[in-house]
């Protein structure tokens, strides 16, 4: 049997680096979801009222629903291009464990789509009159939560690859699974804005991140193989 000489960490790094490099050549992939996030957040004061007390009450929900929708939007691009140009096929034939490479790929996806949302969140928090002390917790909860969304979403993105009309379907599959993230994330933000310690929901988000990072690459790998059948 042929054995590969590239180590697992090195293989994962190559997958990650390639996706980062591609994103630097094409910025839209990174900027579009963030722009969407900012615009969705702008809708709420316009639709409801610019009154700071009201905005403060709805801020956790607005940020989290916005983040969830933006993350969904970004998911669409996770495997699509790789499927179309044949690189996804090659990834499954690399001889390295597919789930491991997909873990790296999902991590790259989070760096390119989740992290920008985390960075943009303080802007939205300020716009919604959220107290400054809550921003740290907001960003931490978003960092953990968007991580979970990337992992859960990668399964959905891979499952809808081989199907007709992928994007709406992707939302239908991922949204119910994402509800716990929304609950804990918004709750952590809410607690921080009331000046309470938000440790409970943050730990739960962290636990979900570990669970989803462990299990979802296996499901994603199975789904990718189905999409290539």
């Amino acid at each position: 049997m042929t054995t590969l000489t590239t180590s697992l960490p090195r293989a994962a790094w190559l997958v990650l680096e390639r996706d980062l490099r591609l994103a630097f050549r094409r910025w839209e992939q990174v900027t579009h979801p963030v722009m969407f996030f900012l615009m969705v957040a702008t809708l709420f004061p316009l639709a409801l009222s610019p009154e700071p007390a009201l905005l403060r009450t709805i801020a956790p929900g607005v940020v989290w629903v916005g983040a969830l929708l933006s993350a969904l939007l970004a998911l669409e691009s996770l495997f699509r291009a790789d499927l179309e140009d044949g690189t996804l096929e090659q990834l499954t034939l690399s001889g390295q464990p597919l789930a491991w490479l997909l873990l790296a790929k999902t991590l790259a996806h989070w760096l390119l789509s989740g992290l920008p949302l985390v960075v943009a969140a303080p802007l939205i928090a300020a716009g919604l009159a959220a107290p400054g002390e809550a921003v740290g917790t907001l960003m931490l909860s978003l960092a953990l939560g968007t991580g979970v969304l990337s992992f859960i979403g990668s399964v959905g993105a891979a499952l809808t690859l081989g199907s007709r009309r992928g994007s709406v379907l992707l939302s239908l599959l991922v949204l119910p699974l994402a509800m716990p993230v929304l609950i804990f994330g918004a709750r952590a933000t809410d607690q921080a804005m009331r000046g309470e310690v938000a440790d409970g929901p943050l730990w739960l988000l962290a636990a979900m991140l570990i669970l989803s990072a462990t299990l979802s690459p296996l499901a994603t790998a199975a789904a990718v193989r189905v999409s290539l059948e």
Partner: peptide
């Protein structure tokens, strides 16, 4: 969303 039954089953 799948035309092919085998793929629909597995996905």
């Amino acid at each position: 969303a799948f035309d092919d039954l085998t793929r629909a089953d597995r996905a």
